[in-house]
Design a protein around this nucleic acid. Structure first.
Lengths: 346, 346
DNA sequence: CTGTTAGCGCTTTCAA
DNA sequence: TTGAAAGCGCTAACAG
């Protein structure tokens, strides 16, 4: 009917009339006489034997699992990364385990602890907030780890990161080129790694173009989410009249689009809009949103491969890879030629 | 520097000058003299000891992991479910392991195999295609399993499902009420469980209202994704002129919105649009999309709790819960009163 | 209160 | 080729 007793090699051996060693050999495709192979296979089938992964792991000292810890499974950029990672991982014979850490620094530590207990053979971590404690724990961890994202100067840990300041610069350059001058910036929390980096990119780029940095042209959403984005953008529009808005990620950009549309502001005619991460949502928004491509997919893939390498070679020196950003120009930032409407692409 | 030798209870015991049993007791908060507790704790700290989860699992016969297998991590409905599940699971002391099965039937079996080897103590599965083989394997599985979604008649497995035919009916009723008559249906693959159910709902509802069922008013996307949705919707619009479109999920609805906008069709004025699943993307689209709420969040939560119960009581009879759908009405299906544009909500 | 010991289920020498 | 036996690191009787 339902749950039976657990079936072990011992049971199979008894049933087949051979030793457990023979069962193990057959199971692992090692040398054995045809007769034994047949007997064991039959016993396995009859009993419905399934080897225990736990026992095997204990013996082997490895779990064949790789963990991917992200702050927010709801963020499309992580979803995209997940896809890439799972490709790479699957082809390597590991299973991928996803852990959602939330944006609490503490939760990240818990995940790390948990993994250090041996649930996985390696960890891909994309931390939102890098506290000194986290760095400390990361460095003393016995587990191979690759960080997706930036790390403080001098920290020796494998990592692959995007150059988001340059990315923001790309966005500013493009907007300036489009004749925009009053470029506002909607950021996420500035005490996060990406928040801080993107802010500095904005400041640098504005300065480079000789544009003024005004406090009322900058707002920070409480989190990198659509909901918090709405609040932030509305605050911005209440206090300023930008002719362009750069958002620190695509979710915030979609929120900006929504907020502006509700206010009767036209994008891109009244306000040009640029997001970051270049995820699906930028493509499917109406109008589609120009977005800074920070190479998330490339980064995820590179990180997964790096981790695999690290697992094979635990003592190699730490690597660090930087992926160059590009800009994907879409409708939201380029003034339309005509008031036309009907697209007629055969 | 880097990877050291694994530290075990034995090492800690030696270092502390006590027996391994005492170490184990201290670690698990069992009775021990203050002196021993102190010595052990110090040794643990000094050596940086971390207990091995694998060994503990082998001994305990459980892993404290629960697996959630979904077809496509990129689908917002699964993301929403994930959130709910992870809440419930986290509070119960289990870790959540996400497995992406892809839409291949075979991959689902692999996941099942893998899990049966003991990687998890329970499984939440939301299968897209329910093959006889899958049902067979599900039933003979030694692992507690709860299915999110419908199952063939007579299959005795815990499951919590939505009544999507009724859900589609809600959408049709609403559109008819709005004066729409030429209601088209954009489905996903009909050989999937949701695809089949939603189609039958459409057929029933149209018949009930005495509306004709026309072949050119029905298309099936190759998959429940945005990209495949674009293709399907364009095919539909090339061959028919509906005044309303129901899409089998929100991703398809967003694609429909995009395709129509590109053709200069106004939503909802020219064509009313209704999606299904009531996910975030329905809310953030412009215009926001009316969507059938199939209670995904509720289902996920109920399923997680059911699984927890099942793990505690493996031999209780199979349960089956049905969540009633509701309709979340938004802009995409209700004709605007005025041609107005500027929203002026204080 | 503490230590000794027997496994959990598996792989893998080591002999036969 | 095959079998006996020794653990992987941990917990839980069972004595002391």
């Amino acid at each position: 009917m339902s749950t039976h007793k657990r079936i072990t090699v011992q049971l199979v051996a008894d049933h087949a009339g051979v030793s457990i060693a023979s069962v193990s050999r057959v199971l692992n495709g090692l040398a054995a006489s045809d007769e034994v192979v047949a007997k064991v296979n039959q016993a396995v089938a009859e009993l419905g034997y399934v080897p225990s992964a736990t026992a095997r792991s204990l013996k082997a000292g490895k779990t064949d699992q790789i963990a991917f810890a992200v702050a927010d499974v709801g963020n499309p950029v992580y979803v995209a990364m997940m896809h890439e990672v799972s490709q790479v991982i699957a082809h390597s014979g590991y299973r991928l385990v996803l852990s959602s850490t939330g944006n609490e620094a503490e939760a990240q530590l818990d995940v790390l602890d948990s993994l250090n207990r041996g649930f996985a053979d390696g960890l891909l971590l994309s931390p939102l907030r890098v506290t000194p404690e986290l760095v400390e724990r990361l460095q003393t961890s016995r587990l191979p780890i690759v960080i997706i994202g930036s790390l403080p100067e001098g920290v020796e840990l494998d990592n692959v990161r995007a150059d988001s300041p340059v990315g923001v610069g790309l966005a500013v350059d493009h907007l300036v080129e489009q004749g925009r001058k009053r470029i506002a910036f909607v950021n996420g929390p500035v005490d996060t790694v990406p928040g801080a980096a993107r802010l500095s990119g904005y400041v640098n780029a504005m300065t480079k173009h000789g544009l003024p940095l005004q406090a009322e042209m900058q707002v920070n959403a409480a989190d990198f989410t659509y909901k918090d984005g709405l609040v932030a953008v509305n605050a911005l529009l209440d206090q300023a009249t930008p002719d362009a808005i750069i958002c620190a990620n695509d979710l915030l950009a979609v929120a900006a689009l929504k907020a502006m549309t509700l206010r009767g502001l036209s994008v891109p005619n009244d306000v040009a809009l640029v997001g970051m991460d270049d995820t699906d949502v930028a493509e499917l928004a109406i109008p589609s949103i120009t977005s800074v491509n920070l190479g998330s997919r490339t980064r995820a893939e590179a990180a997964a491969e790096m981790l695999l390498r690290r697992i094979d070679e635990p003592n190699a020196p730490a690597e660090s890879v930087v992926i160059a950003p590009t800009l994907t120009i879409r409708e939201s930032s380029v003034m339309q030629r005509e008031t036309a409407s009907v697209g007629d692409n055969k």
